[in-house]
Design a protein around this nucleic acid. Structure first.
Length: 515
RNA sequence: GCUGGUAUCGUCUAAUGGUUAGGACAGAUGGUUCUCAUCCAUCAAAUCGGAGUUCGAUUCUCCGUACCAGUACCA
């Protein structure tokens, strides 16, 4: 019966001003999920109308991040197999700076219809006006000084303006009376008195449109069915609706989404922590974990399931379940989800992802076998919250640690404990390590497997009626240089992984010497 | 200031005109363990305030309050 319903088309329309804000990714994701859920089209349009804020390489970076995260546009810009920026779709160009004539044409149309007008006011006048108004505690608004100029006056001002080397701007002529209502899919009906709306600049003096004009023209011609964007745009939506009316176009549906917030509940910003998506990726947050986490900020499937693949999200996502109130970006929960995803990774895959981080930590991964790296990864897998932690956690497998300071700290602490409640002191540790070194000397290199070592050490402890801790702790410190948690794990595994008999004995001897 | 929006554990959230207001993260405790982590179990933790409607309100209405956003030739 719903054959006539229009195809769902959503867009993500960022400005190429540098890094990719994680809030933008959430916005993009919701638009993407909504489109995909409805077999619709997701479009990427670049809004580069602010020449002053353009950043070289921003589009490239954006597309790379999106591709990594699996948010791939059907139309507009995307990255091809070779990571080259490409554009596709029938309704382009999808770069606003290439659509200037279209905007200018439409501005002229509005002027003709009396829904827009030239404004010749200087920035100084505007500044002073604003100052006066705020001093009087009035809402700062353009006073419509140029709104009712006659044709002749416009002509005159135009000449004057040009002779000074300036260009006028074009402002939207907001109706003086009436109300404009937004029927928002998430927030419901919101109405604004037209008298409170500012005569917004539509075309800047540099000939570029402002967001307000460009977004309306583009969304119309790109046949956007649902405008998905954040809450901060609600106040300008009535102006957009008025523009649609002025053009005689049908407005799309609006779905505003709640903001992502700092811990202090202000709009999520760089000042208060990480917001750049590429930084999260660099730190070793997995794309799918990031997506999963961000999907739950402002949306909920209303079941108790919390872990979703992208496909599952597409299946479950609905604008109806999007909230109205902002969500604080809680890094703790991200860490948990990321850890969970890491734990669920297959080792080979994990090693592949880990290699860049090992390299970053100065490990020449080429020198080691896949198997060696895998056994190390396996040992730390359930402890990792971020991939970037791997270097610090496993450095002693690749080089003998500089751990003399650690040994001393440990020695001091042990002595203190010993004087307290009869624990074993450093001298005791020294004895045991010496014994162990002797024991390892007798071992056949081929017996250095985890299982065998576990048995050997266990037998050693039982034979001498030692405490586990009084043997295993010194052993761990001696081998890894990690004198307390957070740190090592099964000592036997550490030994077995491949330090080799010679290196093990060497480290034990160093420890004995220093204790 | 003006306009608009929002309000459930510290955080993300579920539910309901009658419930012990549920789950997850974080926190605490216990178990497992040579430490950490994992895993399991347990505990603690919330309906912003006031009126009204109602037999009954956290839920509906109104009024407050707090917070947030917008208020550019930025998006």
């Amino acid at each position: 019966m719903n054959q006539t319903t229009k195809k769902i088309r959503t867009r993500f329309a960022p400005s190429p001003t540098g890094y990719v804000h994680i809030g933008n990714i959430r916005t993009a994701l919701f638009g993407y999920l909504f489109a995909k859920h409805n077999n619709g089209t997701f479009i990427l349009r670049i809004e580069d109308t602010d020449r002053a804020r353009l950043v070289e390489g921003a589009v490239d970076n954006l597309l790379r991040v999106m591709k990594t995260l699996g948010i791939v546009p059907d139309e507009g810009f995307y990255l091809d197999k070779n990571d080259q920026v490409k554009e596709r779709g029938e309704l382009g160009p999808y770069l606003q700076s290439e659509r200037l004539q279209l905007y200018q044409k439409h501005v002229l149309e509005l002027i003709e219809k009396g829904r827009a007008y030239y404004c010749f006011c200087s920035e100084q006048r505007l500044d002073e006006l604003r100052k006066e108004q705020t001093a009087l505690k009035k809402p700062p608004m353009y006073d419509r000084h140029c709104r009712n100029l006659t044709k002749e006056q416009v002509q005159l001002e135009m000449e004057k303006c040009r002779s000074e080397g300036r260009n006028p701007v074009v402002r939207q002529a907001i109706p003086e009376q009436g109300q404009t209502v937004i029927n928002d899919l998430i927030y419901g009906d919101i109405s604004y008195d037209n008298s409170l709306l500012d005569d917004q600049v539509l075309l800047k003096s540099d000939g570029f449109p402002t967001y307000h004009l460009a977004v309306v023209v583009d969304d119309h011609y790109m046949e956007i069915s649902h405008v998905t964007r954040t809450e901060e745009w609600i106040p300008s939506t009535p102006k957009h609706i008025l523009l649609y009316k002025a053009f005689g176009w049908e407005a799309p549906k609006f779905a505003h989404m709640p903001l992502l917030l700092n811990p202090d509940k202000s709009k999520l910003s760089k000042r208060q922590g990480d917001v750049a998506t590429e930084d999260f990726l660099k730190k070793g947050y997995l794309p799918q974990a990031l997506i999963n986490f961000v999907a739950f900020l402002g949306w909920n499937p209303k079941t108790e399931q919390e872990i979703f693949t992208m496909d599952e999200l597409i299946k479950e996502f609905d604008l109806i379940n999007v909230h109205k109130s902002g969500a604080i970006f809680d890094i703790n929960k991200l860490d948990w989800i990321n850890g969970l995803y890491i734990r669920n990774m297959e080792v080979g895959e994990l090693v592949k992802d880990l290699i860049p981080y090992w390299r970053q930590a100065g490990v020449d991964t080429e020198k080691y076998t896949e198997k060696y790296l895998e056994s190390i990864a396996l040992l730390e897998r359930e402890r990792l919250k971020k991939l970037s932690e791997i270097g610090d956690r496993t450095h002693y497998f690749f080089a003998r640690p500089e751990y003399e300071a650690a040994l001393l700290v440990w020695k001091k602490r042990k002595s203190a404990e010993a004087s307290g409640e009869g624990g074993s002191d450093a001298a005791d540790a020294k004895t045991k390590l010496t014994m162990l070194a002797g024991l390892f000397e007798t071992l056949n290199e081929t017996r250095l497997t985890k299982e065998d070592l576990e048995e050997i050490i266990k037998n050693f402890i039982d034979e001498h009626h030692f405490d586990n801790g009084s043997v295993l702790w010194p052993l761990r410190v001696a081998l890894t240089g990690l004198e307390k948690s957070p740190g090592p794990f099964e000592v036997a595994s550490t030994l077995a992984i491949g330090l080799g008999k010679t290196e093990i004995i060497k480290r034990l001897k160093i420890a004995v010497e220093k204790l």
